[in-house]
Design a binder for these strands. Structure first.
Lengths: 213, 213
DNA sequence: CGACAATACGAGCAAACGCTCGTGTTGTCG
DNA sequence: CGACAACACGAGCGTTTGCTCGTATTGTCG
């Protein structure tokens, strides 16, 4: 139950080799967790399996994460940061209101697809309609971050619409992405590209109706 | 909860009270299972909880179903039958090629929405993008039945399209339904109706593109 | 009735899980 | 060096889960 050791070290300002090794281990564990979540899903993933995949013992794992949910939360945190950065990069310096809807959808969707492909565990944790309590609490921030981002985009493009309508539209758009992402983030590139294009069209059509009304 | 007892009687000519009681118990168990699945989800549902909800002991439960998956399979079987009947009724005697797309979508979607509302466990078992092995095997027949039905509909309306394209379109359509159903099968009727209408529009737009091409 | 099978029970088993704890190892610093 | 804290280990604890088994009850039929 020893907490606060990290804070203590942070205050000292020194970065000894110990700490570097510790952070390396954390990254190791998160990577292993991602692989296990990807292959067997959230409930199928055991902490012992994650430890084994990371090449360490269960005891060592619990020196860095207090419990399974903390691992999930940390992993999701990296997703929030990573995806946020990808989207900022994709929209940086653009005039949101001037972009064609087709272009805008592409700039949001394509990084998301790429991120899904590069982080296979992403959809195992995120793209579910039914979640255990612990998981839905952990993914809450990720959902909220995406929702806020989409709402902000829509607000910039259709300022005359009510916030409630925009939020509603954003929810539908995100659900559409979640529904088709499992078929897009797949190894068969022919199938994948086909579904991606369909989703793209679907989003453009749906959002043009939202902006138009 | 009076099930096929009468039909059984007609076939055998005799009245095996034992057997009638057994079938009643089965229905009791399935109903209890549906309630438990609805409230705590598939993995949260314990066989003991199902037995308790049905008002029987675990031992008794296992006299009718060999294991948890068999319960799920039986429950899904009732869904396949029930939904099939609802859809046959909704499309009975209609000229599929002559119906407007809007009308057709309504006739398929509305019974589905009603069925979801009346069988709350339905989406807990069906509308998931990520499933345990056992559950996805159990829901396989239900997915396949729905897919075949949609493919048949589309084939009747767009015979010039390739079977592969139609199957592909059917998959997308079903995914759209699964994505928005959790927000439709909800108690707040205002919200529910709003999402239902959006899904309806989405499907009409998408399928008109499929038929048009 | 008496024999038998179907039904019902519920304590509890074996396995799996998240997690702990006692012990040993390694890097840091006075 | 010696003391100490972080790191590492892995057997195994406590709990939960799906499921069993020995036993008691009930309906059926010769």
């Amino acid at each position: 139950m020893a907490t606060g050791r990290v804070a203590e070290q942070a205050v000292t300002g020194r970065v000894p080799r110990r700490r570097a090794r510790g952070e390396c281990r954390m990254a190791q564990i998160l990577e292993a967790a991602a692989e296990v979540f990807h292959t067997v899903g959230y409930e199928g993933a055991t902490t012992n399996a994650i430890a084994a995949r990371a090449g360490i013992s269960p005891g060592s794992l619990y020196q860095f994460f207090g419990n399974k949910d903390e691992i999930v939360r940390a992993l999701i945190e990296t997703y929030v940061v990573g995806l946020g950065a990808a989207h900022v990069a994709a929209l940086d310096g653009e005039d949101l209101a001037a972009l064609s809807l087709d272009d805008l959808v592409g700039r949001v969707l394509d990084p998301l697809v790429r991120y899904n492909r590069e982080h296979r565990a992403f959809k195992a944790l995120f793209a579910r309609t039914d979640m255990p309590r612990a998981l839905s609490e952990a993914t809450g921030p990720l959902h909220e971050a995406m929702l806020q981002r989409v709402v902000a985009l829509l607000t910039a493009r259709a300022p005359q619409s009510s916030p409630a309508d925009l939020r509603h539209a954003a929810i539908v758009a995100i659900q559409l992405v979640k529904a088709l992402m499992p078929m897009i983030a797949v190894d068969d590139m022919t199938e994948s590209e086909r579904y991606r294009r369909e989703l793209h069209l679907l989003l453009v059509d749906y959002l043009s109706r939202v902006e138009g009304s």
